[in-house]
Design a protein around this nucleic acid. Structure first.
Lengths: 165, 165
DNA sequence: GTTAGTGCAAACCTTTTGCAGCTCT
DNA sequence: AGAGCTGCAAAAGGTTTGCACTAAC
């Protein structure tokens, strides 16, 4: 059930379509979410308990290097993991809620305009654009307002500004 | 010579301005370049040979968490290191040459427009925007064209598509 | 004088590498 | 058949943590 596009692209590069790669490709494609290496590994293991973590890393690297998937950081929301998504869609930005981790996508003319300007003004040949936005989603914004209000009651603790993991 | 703005901001948070922090702050501010933790550590050691790597990490984390510096990945140009810059300037994108590593900065209306649209259309409260662009600078574009031409002479090797670190 | 911050060593975690054996084509 | 891939174990980064000592306020 793997999309033919990626399979074809792999073949084109003279790369082999192994059982493991098929599994990983399908997971990457059907999962709407942005998966990190570990989650992808766990999911893959459900289908093939013998699959190795290293294979996941190698496959991701391969796909990344051939430009078939994009690598994201999602503003380092929880840790330093990288997230991956297939490169099918239109260029877009990832908008991450720093409180709940929800990721929304933004498509908009300004993105394309920026790309054009960079090419024209800076003389760059642009290959990849990664735009990540961190903030609070509408839902968490409300919750946060309440939190701050509550904090205002109790005398503000010294180290309150520091973030917790 | 440390900019008063950051010192003041630290004080405001009830944080101490130690000798080590002073050194790190000054390095971050005066260095136009984008430093990673390791380079910052080396530079700091020139001024205080006893300074510890851990202190660098802790300070960076602190500054990041209090929003005084921004953390960048620069499209993962060479490795997974993070780069840091003080948060003084106007919002901008980093344009990284994937061949020579040169980093240029892009300021442009589309960046601000994008931010506005995200706030208005998605209902997000935007706190940080990180835009990183990878490609080839005008100089390397020319070099690359020659490389590709040369490669076209010799029969293309199988694994040639794979990238080298 | 307190309490935050530092240095040191060791732990952690994710990703990479070397190599023998397996498997796609 | 044979090069490409995989699995395993071990190494290699980069970053964090526990704890006793030091220094900023």
């Amino acid at each position: 059930m793997t999309a033919p596009s990626i399979e074809a692209a792999l073949r084109q590069q003279g790369l082999r379509l192994t059982r493991q790669r098929r599994i990983l490709l399908e997971l990457l494609e059907r999962s709407g979410a942005h998966l990190d290496a570990d989650r992808l590994y766990r999911l893959a293991r459900e289908r093939d308990p013998k699959i190795n973590r290293v294979t996941v890393y190698r496959t991701l690297k391969l796909l990344k290097d051939t430009g078939l998937v994009d690598e994201l950081d999602l503003m380092h929301w929880e840790g330093e993991a990288h997230y991956y998504e297939t490169r099918m869609k239109q260029e877009h930005a990832h908008v991450v809620c720093l409180r709940c981790g929800k990721v929304e996508e933004y498509y908009g003319e300004p993105l394309r305009k920026m790309r054009r300007q960079i090419e024209n003004h800076l003389g760059f040949q642009v290959l990849m654009v990664r735009t990540e936005v961190g903030g609070y989603c509408s839902h968490c914004r409300a919750l946060r307002a309440r939190e701050l209000e509550a904090a205002a009651q109790t005398p503000p603790t010294r180290g309150a500004a520091r973030r917790q993991r």
